[in-house]
Design a protein around this nucleic acid. Structure first.
Lengths: 110, 110
DNA sequence: GACGACATTGAAGAAGTCTTCAATTGGTGT
DNA sequence: ACACCAATTGAAGACTTCTTCAATGTCGTC
């Protein structure tokens, strides 16, 4: 194992650590989409979206194909959809338990 | 929902995006540990470890308690242990499929 | 083949994160 | 009270990542 596993994991999570990239992956979880749609649904500038798509492409978790004048993006494999589902589930749990934590701290500044 | 969910998710993943923090979370997955042990097992400088622990503490996914002269860290809740298990499972899958991808690209420089 | 829409690229400055240093706090033993 | 070990803090410089801009590539249509 050339690259330590911790580092590979860290890089992977860092790759996920951007709102636009998260958003794109979730949208692609429902199926392939042309860039035009992603553009409309994320509301970011075209070049910015392209930069983020390039990050995802380099990481190998999405693939792009041309369809006439448009470019269509899709998740690179079913694992990725699983990942996004798991992440959503876990995140919801964690955010919820953080909310509970906050609630349990009400009244005690510390 | 004040903070968009995408952003909360992104922040969460970014928080995971560091080798030392990943390592610490995995170690704590087996149970609470004093800083001294974490220090020995990660091999990083004390102040560096403290900085990373502070990040995890601020995120609310670990808690620290004093035990005499030492400080002991633990995961803040069982969700977090679930998270780390899921992350490990998913990462293994993803890294594996990336390896397969690489293998399938052998011979075609592109 | 030139025009327009769609998408990507490279580069530059702004913003954020990491590592390291010296200084500090909290607790123990003498 | 003092010295000592364990851990944390704040601050500075190095390093990455983000956003934005202008420039470029690609395809369909006229």
């Amino acid at each position: 194992m050339q690259v330590p596993l911790y580092q590979a994991k860290a890089e992977f999570f860092r790759m996920l650590g951007h709102p636009v990239r998260i958003r794109v992956l979730e949208l692609l979880g429902d199926g392939p989409r042309p860039v035009r749609d992603l553009l409309a649904e994320t509301g970011v500038e075209a070049s910015n979206l392209s930069q983020q798509l390039a990050v995802l492409r380099r990481a190998g978790i999405v693939v792009s194909t041309r369809d006439g004048a448009q470019v269509v993006y899709a998740l690179a494999g079913p694992d990725v959809a699983d990942l996004m589902r798991a992440a959503r589930r876990i995140l919801t749990e964690v955010l919820q338990s953080q909310a509970e934590l906050l609630a349990s701290l009400k009244g005690g500044v510390e």
